[in-house]
Write a protein that binds this DNA or RNA. Structure first.
Length: 474
RNA sequence: GGUCCCAUCGUCUAGUGGCCCAGGACACCACCCUCUCAAGGUGGAGACACGGGUUCAAACCCCGUUGGGACUACCA
């Protein structure tokens, strides 16, 4: 039987990296085994879901290079792939469960439920649903019906031990009686997550459910519903959560942890995928860099770690720098930087930008850093920063004028010739390179930090270089 | 409270009874390289949560403790 995996995000907010990591594992597992990967949008809570949010999920996954065979945009044999469009399906299955005696009408109101929960807590008893409506006599039921009481549909959890053979956690046992009857259909007729997932996974032929371990306790319920419906439950693999710096599972309150945020921060998709792949999974004892293809070739669930991992953005950035360095196509890198320069209000000339790439590629942890590294090339509005001003002041107008004059005469205008001239000017003043060059750097780039000076000046051009140094000399 | 999950350097991890007084990577420190900043090179410091077992032998197996986390909703 061919493997079928799915990723089923709720598009309520943005797709955060913890969530995506789970999707990545699911995708990698499917691809590794030559199976199918399904994207399903979990929007039973339809009110808060916007079209935009769904689009955001699709965008983020595509950017990462995670592709799917069936989904809301591409369709497939089990369409539709948005739960909000499958309400009838859930209704039919809920009815079947009721007529088969696997689910029952629960007339308890939310207020009553809450009251009993509090009472149980006060007596030191477990607070779950007490199963009251499951044990109603026919007469009681009839009375409630005649009252016109609204009801929810509750699944009658078989009262036995439930065992989940999890591919990551191993055999997990839930003692009889600890899993209570749960609502599958709200009194307003809308299905709950617990019904929708089970029905969809069954109908869509999902063979392996790979998801966060916060859903581990949902697995026996999912399986029970599918069994009651006459289906075969999928295999489960519950991967641990990704934690934030505070050691708690990543969520909205950790700030910018969405895929989109990393993209806007100048992280390369191949770096994010690589980093995420190694968060909770390892190929062996030493592999650090993997392409998507290498990942799918090597990935399997038996090497997924069972303990939670903390997200380390420093390591991500280190890895990002590696990918930027190894992106040896200057045009490609320039194109990727262009976006960030544009956002910063610059309009770089493409040829110049491309020629600047060798100077900055090993200096950027993120593409966004290309802005501060290269602004001096794409604007003549260079206002020296504090340290640059100090350097200029210390050097004095005399020195700068001499340097400007010498540079004006450099022929040809190449990094090599420029370097020789800079050395000559510094030497004449009795300065070493550091002391002699820093004022020039400050004048030409407006900063005490820049890409290598002679190469930077070569790109800047003679005219602009000389003008800036003369300007700074006044 | 109950149920369940988890526990190796600060972080991500390798390790499935002897190869481990624990290996790699990020971060950190030092040195080298060096026009600034990076990158790169070399070296260093740094962990098996604790307590009991089992065994000739335990990071690895069992039990307990402690500490994290999840679930316990007409959220997903």
């Amino acid at each position: 039987m061919s493997i079928r995996c799915r990723f089923a995000p709720a598009p309520s907010g943005s797709l955060h990296v913890g969530n995506v990591r789970t999707g990545l594992f699911s995708w990698a597992y499917a691809r590794h085994h030559g199976g199918a990967f399904v994207l399903r949008i979990e929007d039973t809570d339809a009110s808060r879901v916007t079209e935009e949010a769904v689009h955001g999920v699709v965008e983020s996954l595509m950017w990462l290079g995670i592709d799917w065979d069936e989904g809301p945009d591409v369709g497939g044999p089990h369409a539709p792939y948005r739960q909000s469009q499958r309400m009838e399906v859930y209704g039919e299955h809920a009815d079947r469960l009721v007529s088969d005696g696997a689910a029952y009408r629960c007339y308890c109101t939310p207020e009553e439920l809450e009251e009993r929960r509090q009472a149980a807590l006060a007596h030191g008893e477990p607070p779950g649903y007490d199963g009251r409506c499951r044990r109603l006599t026919d007469a009681e039921r009839r009375a409630l019906e005649e009252e016109g009481r609204p009801f929810a549909l509750r699944f009658a959890m078989p009262e036995r031990e439930h065992v989940v053979r999890d591919l990551v956690k191993g055999e997990v046992r839930f003692r009889a009686g600890t899993l209570r009857d749960f609502v599958i259909m709200r009194s307003d007729g809308s299905p709950t997550f617990l019904l929708a997932v089970a029905v969809d996974d069954m109908l869509m032929g999902i063979t392996h459910v790979i998801r966060g371990d916060d859903l581990l306790a949902a697995a026996p319920r999912n399986a029970a519903v599918i069994e009651a419906l006459g289906g075969t439950p999928p295999a489960f693999a519950h991967v641990p959560q990704v934690n934030g710096p505070d050691g708690r599972p990543l969520s909205k309150r950790h700030g910018s942890t969405s895929v989109e945020a990393f993209r806007e921060h100048g992280i390369l998709p191949e770096a994010l995928v690589n980093y995420l792949a190694l968060l909770g999974w390892s190929k062996d004892d030493h592999t650090t860099f993997l392409s998507r293809d290498e990942l799918t070739a090597a990935f399997d669930l038996d090497r997924v770690s069972s303990n939670p991992a903390m997200f380390d953005s420093q390591k991500l950035e280190w890895m990002n720098n590696h990918y930027i360095q190894t992106l040896d196509d200057d045009d490609d890198l320039a194109a990727r930087c262009l976006h960030f320069l544009s956002v910063a209000g610059l309009t770089p000339e493409l040829g110049l930008l491309r020629r600047a790439m060798p100077l900055v590629r090993e200096r950027m942890k993120t593409l966004a850093e290309s802005v501060e590294l290269l602004t001096f090339l794409f604007t003549d509005d260079v206002e020296p920063n504090e340290k640059a001003r100090a350097l200029l002041e210390k050097a004095g107008g005399e020195y700068l004028r001499k340097a400007a004059d010498a540079l004006a005469a450099v022929e040809p205008w190449t990094a090599g010739a420029i370097q020789a001239t800079l050395d000559a000017v510094a030497g004449e003043a009795g300065l070493n390179r550091t002391k002699g060059w820093q004022p020039i750097r400050a004048a030409a780039t407006g900063s005490n930090v820049s890409p290598p000076l002679p190469e930077s000046l070569e790109l800047l051009g003679r005219e602009r270089t000389v003008a800036r140094i003369q300007g700074a000399a006044r």
